[in-house]
Amino acid sequence: MVGLIAAAAMVASFFLPWVAFFGTELGPVYFFDENAPPMGDYPWRVYAVLASFAFAALAVLCVVLRRRAGLVMLIAGGIPVGLIAEPILRGVDQIQDLPVEVPRGIPGGGDVQGVLDTVSQYIAIGLPMYLIAAFVLVLAGLVRLVRGT
């Protein structure tokens, strides 16, 4: 049941705004807007995010039809989790390779909390909903795979 709710939340987040600034709200639906750039101009990560919505919709369908949905849920949640983890892991490796000590905090005396407060002003409901659903889908998918459902 939790996996179904998370998958449905991920699908719903497709239609909600993810960022809002200067009176404009943008979300994944923007990629299909008439004013959006051609689909061939986007980086591969955009296609991966769009694929996660398709897998989430497939997970909802599998649960409703009482089919095994564990792997589909794991893929739907794993795509965004992987997209988040990949640059972080790459950055950690690059920092560890530096021959100097890297200072903590943000250059120029800023603090991390101040940056988060500033960024949070522009985040709309769709992005946190998508990310929370992704992490829940990874867990639900793993549980379902272990249980064989």
Rank of each mutant, 00 (worst) to 15 (best):
L4C: 07
I5Y: 13
I5T: 11
I5W: 07
A7N: 05
A8G: 12
A9P: 09
M10H: 09
A12F: 08
A12V: 04
S13Y: 03
F15N: 12
F15E: 11
L16F: 11
W18L: 00
W18V: 01
A20E: 15
F22I: 02
T24W: 07
G27R: 00
P28H: 04
V29P: 01
V29C: 02
Y30M: 05
F32V: 00
E34K: 07
E34F: 02
P37F: 06
W44Q: 05
W44C: 01
R45L: 02
R45C: 01
V46L: 10
V46M: 12
A48Q: 12
V49M: 10
L50G: 02
L50C: 05
S52Y: 04
F53S: 00
A56C: 08
A56Q: 02
A57D: 11
A59D: 03
A59H: 02
V60S: 03
L61R: 06
V63R: 04
V63W: 03
V64Q: 07
V64K: 03
L65C: 11
R68M: 05
R68V: 05
L71S: 12
L71R: 12
I75F: 07
I75L: 11
A76C: 11
G78Y: 06
G82K: 06
E86A: 12
P87V: 02
L89P: 15
L89K: 10
L89V: 15
R90Y: 13
G91R: 08
D93S: 13
D93Q: 11
Q94G: 08
I95W: 13
Q96K: 13
V100I: 12
V100M: 13
V100P: 09
E101R: 14
E101S: 12
E101I: 09
V102F: 10
G105N: 11
P107V: 09
G109H: 10
D111M: 06
G114H: 12
G114S: 15
V115E: 13
T118R: 08
V119I: 10
V119W: 14
S120G: 12
S120H: 08
Q121S: 09
Y122G: 08
I125D: 12
G126K: 01
L127T: 06
M129S: 10
M129C: 09
Y130V: 00
I132G: 06
A133L: 02
A134E: 03
F135K: 01
V136H: 13
V136E: 08
V136P: 08
L137K: 01
A140Q: 03
G141K: 00
G141D: 00
L142D: 03
L142S: 02
L145S: 01
V146E: 04
G148V: 00
